[in-house]
């Protein structure tokens, strides 16, 4: 029993070590690649695959988030006669939290799953070994372009999600809830700062990089067979999801600290 636990712990520690080494390798390779124009075409291809085809789902995600927020928050605010502040609430929530996080989760499912499946299949069909056998570092050739592409694209996709969230929230507020649009926008404009939008977008770099690194790692270490690839995809998604939420929390704390040292607290409803 104890021996089994010990063995299990050993495996976990070994895996954590392997993951750490992989992350480090991926970071180094990505930085190196970003200075070598030779790898730009690879990054570009990945950006097309990852980015362009994700735009519609990301926009739909954003729009629904904004719309639901409007419906949910309206009653409480109307109860205290502050329904014209609805815009602040919706837009702050969308650009700071829900837009980035939900867009990232969407990408973890859409892009992360595809990355893991692709690299996992390459792994079990020995294509990754083939890359190694020809004297090329598979992390540099396969992982770095994907990490760079995710890193660069996620912030843009988050902007799309934000935009659609703002539009969705506004549409529901005006057409369904009958809020005066001038008041809605003017409260929003005074409540939502560039800082808030920037925080959300900057999170995107971290989310994108972590999705790509985790998915690639799961693909690289995937076990034999169709079952192995399926399992790796599931694990990659779960791990990406958790890391998105954890990063989101950590970044919220960090950004709040930064903000508070430069600007005093400001109430949104005053």
């Amino acid at each position: 029993m104890l021996a089994a636990l010990g063995a299990r712990a050993m495996v976990d520690v070994t895996n954590a070590g392997r993951f750490g080494r992989f992350v480090w390798g991926a970071i180094v390779a990505s930085i190196r690649s970003s200075t070598r124009p030779g790898t730009y075409p690879l990054v570009w291809t990945q950006m097309l695959i990852i980015g362009v085809r994700s735009v519609p789902v990301i926009m739909i995600t954003g729009a629904f988030v904004g719309m639901s927020l409007a419906v949910q928050a309206y009653d409480q605010l109307a109860g205290i006669g502050l329904e014209e502040h609805l815009g602040v609430l919706i837009n702050i929530s969308v650009v700071k939290e829900l837009g980035p996080v939900l867009a990232a989760v969407m990408l973890a499912g859409r892009v992360g799953g595809a990355l893991t499946a692709e690299l996992g299949t390459m792994n079990v069909t020995e294509q990754i070994d083939a890359v190694r056998s020809m004297g090329t570092d598979p992390v540099r050739y396969l992982v770095a372009p994907r990490v760079l592409a995710c890193l660069l694209l996620t912030p843009f996709l988050i902007i799309y999600a934000d935009l659609m969230g703002v539009v969705g929230g506004a549409v529901v507020s005006f057409s369904q809830l009958g809020i005066n649009s001038t008041a809605y926008w003017s409260f929003s404009a005074s409540g939502v700062e560039l800082w808030d939008v920037a925080v959300g977008v900057v999170k995107g770099f971290f989310f994108g990089a972590s999705i790509a690194v985790i998915s690639c790692y799961k693909g690289f270490t995937c076990r034999e067979g169709a079952h192995g690839v399926g399992l790796a995809c599931t694990e990659a998604f779960v791990l990406s999801f958790i890391s998105i939420l954890a990063l989101d929390f950590a970044l919220a704390v960090i950004f709040k600290g930064i903000y508070n040292t430069f600007w005093p607290f400001k109430s949104l409803i005053a």
Partner: peptide, 19 residues
């Protein structure tokens, strides 16, 4: 190893072509 491997050619049993 990458430098050394350029002296080699390796044919995988399953081919291992990049699909």
């Amino acid at each position: 190893l990458n430098g050394i491997r350029t002296h080699y050619g390796f044919l995988f049993q399953g081919g291992a072509l990049f699909d």
